[in-house]
Amino acid sequence: MSDLPSSVLYLDGITVSFDGFKALNNLSLYIEPGEMRAIIGPNGAGKTTMMDVITGKTKPDSGEVFFDGAVDLAKLDEADIAQLGIGRKFQKPTVFENQTVADNLQLALSGVRGVLETFLWSASARDKTRIDELLEIIRLTHLRDRMANSLSHGQKQWLEIGMLLAQNPKVLLVDEPVAGMTDSETVETARLLREIAENHSVIVVEHDMSFVRDLDVKVTVLAEGSVLAEGSLDSVSADERVIESYLGR
């Protein structure tokens, strides 16, 4: 547990099995405060499952997950964990389709969460400015009052990243943010994430290698539910076992 005090996320010996199949197998991972980490790995390596464990969607069969050195995430549920400051973007972009872009951000804005509070709530000028800022950051200002279901795939991805920012979490878990994006959108997204990483801890899962190269951060390779290699993108891509795990499929 020596890494515990300084890690914002501490996963140790996590195992998750689905009907005997080990989606995560003795996985250990430590994320420092303010760090951005890229996670790569072949399909089915357990990347999404790892995020499910951190965010409380899946309970680990064994192992420990700690947040901020002291909070045992295995004991909490999704809403608690989100309120602690762990935000998540899903692999398949998930926004509230029947609400406007601005309302999607409003719902995500940190602050009121209780039933009575939200019932009595009314928009404050501060929220408005914050939403304007966020729209600026994710470049959707001109679509402010559009229904989210009219957005393109890439725009939905950005809106979801904007919602993550609106939550103002300490840690952002971003699952495949550039899937289905055009090249220029991909470059934009890398820029956006680097900007976000300036004052947040971020974990990014991605298959797109040029995108991961753009991020220019430490890379963890997952395969068959555990960590295969860790280091710079160049060093891990030179690693024999990594090449094998990708080619072996």
Partner: peptide, 22 residues
């Protein structure tokens, strides 16, 4: 109300709503 927005959010994407902390 904003609670109504949350209700619609639950209707359209329940687990997303949970991960926002509701």
């Amino acid at each position: 109300s904003r609670a109504g927005m949350v209700l619609a959010a639950i209707r359209d994407a329940e687990s997303r709503t949970r991960f926002l902390g509701y």
